[in-house]
Design a protein around this nucleic acid. Structure first.
Lengths: 86, 86, 86, 86
DNA sequence: CTGCCATTTTACCGGC
DNA sequence: GCCGGTAAAATGGCAG
C-alpha cells in the first residue's frame, strides 16, 4: 500500500486517534464551561431575573454599537411600513 | 420601594451586572476552546483526514456510553409492527 | 395472550402502522409549507429586504402588544442596570 | 428620493407588507398541520402506544431513504482506526 | 457570495 | 404547575 493521503492503517490510524482524542478532551472542557454558564443563568433566575432578557442583553453587548443602531433603525422603518406604530 | 423580586435599582443592578459579566467571561473561555477545536480539525484536514467523518466518529463515541438498550427492545417491537426489518 | 393494551401483534400492528403513516403524511405537508416560507423569504431578500429584520417583525406581530411592551420595558431596565445607555 | 434598493416608503412598504402577510398565512397553515400531528399522537397514546417510541420510529424511517452507504464505508475505516469495534 | 452545515436559542411536550 | 428534556427554528460560520 502506497500510503498516499491518510489511509488509516498503521501510523495514520494512530494519528487519527490522537486528533480525535484531542478534540474530545477540548469538547469536554467546553461542555463543562457550558454547564457553568447554565448554572449562572439558573442562579440568576432564582434571584428573580429574566433569563431570556439576560440573553438579549448579552447578545446586544456583543454587537458593535454602530451595527446595533443600524438594526434598530431598520427595524423601525420596517415596523412603520407594515403599520406597527413604533 | 419594597424591592421584592429583582428590580434593578441599587444593589439588584449590581447583582445583574455581576451575573452578566460572569457569563460573558465564561462565554469567552468557551469561545477560546471552540477555537482550539477548530484548529485541531484544520490540522487533521491538512493531514488528509475527512473532517465531516471525524465529526461523525466523535458524535458516535459520545452516544455509545448510553445504555439505551432498555428502550431498544420496545423500539424493536414497534419497528417490526410497521414493517422495518430490524 | 390477552392482548390488553397495545401489543403490536395482529391488528395492533396495523393500527400503529396507520398512525405512523398519518403522521408522516402530515409531516410531509408541513415540510412543504416550510419550504414555501423559505422561498418567500428568498424572494423578499432578492427584492432587497433584510430577512433577519423581517423575522423580527413577524415575531413581534405574533406577540400580544402588552407582552411586547413589557419585554421592551424590562430590556430597558436591564440595559440601564448594566450601563448601556438606552 | 432615488428609491434604490428597498426603502420602505410608498410601494416598497406595500411590497414588504405583502411578503410579511404571505409568510404569516403560510405559518398559520403550518401551525394547523402541526396541531393535527399533535392530535394523532394523542389518539395513538390513548390507544396505548408509546409516543416517544413512535417519534423514534418516524425519525428512523425518515433517515433510511438516504443512501448513506457511500460514507459508511469511510466511517467504518475510521471507526476501526480509533478502536471502535464496527 | 451563495448555499450548506453546525451551533445556539427558542418553543413544545411529556413527566412529576 | 413547573421542570426537564427533546425537537424546531434561527443565527452564524465555512466551503465551494
Amino acid at each position: 500500500m502506497a500510503d498516499s493521503g491518510a489511509e488509516t492503517g498503521g501510523i495514520a490510524a494512530d494519528h487519527l486517534k490522537s486528533f480525535i482524542e484531542r478534540i474530545e478532551r477540548l469538547e469536554e472542557e467546553k461542555a463543562a464551561i457550558a454547564n457553568d454558564v447554565k448554572e449562572v443563568y439558573a442562579e440568576a433566575k432564582g434571584t428573580g431575573f429574566d433569563v431570556k432578557i439576560m440573553r438579549q442583553i448579552i447578545r446586544l453587548r456583543k454587537m458593535e454599537p454602530n451595527d446595533r443602531a443600524e438594526q434598530e433603525e431598520l427595524l423601525d422603518i420596517y415596523m412603520r411600513a407594515v403599520g406597527m406604530v413604533a
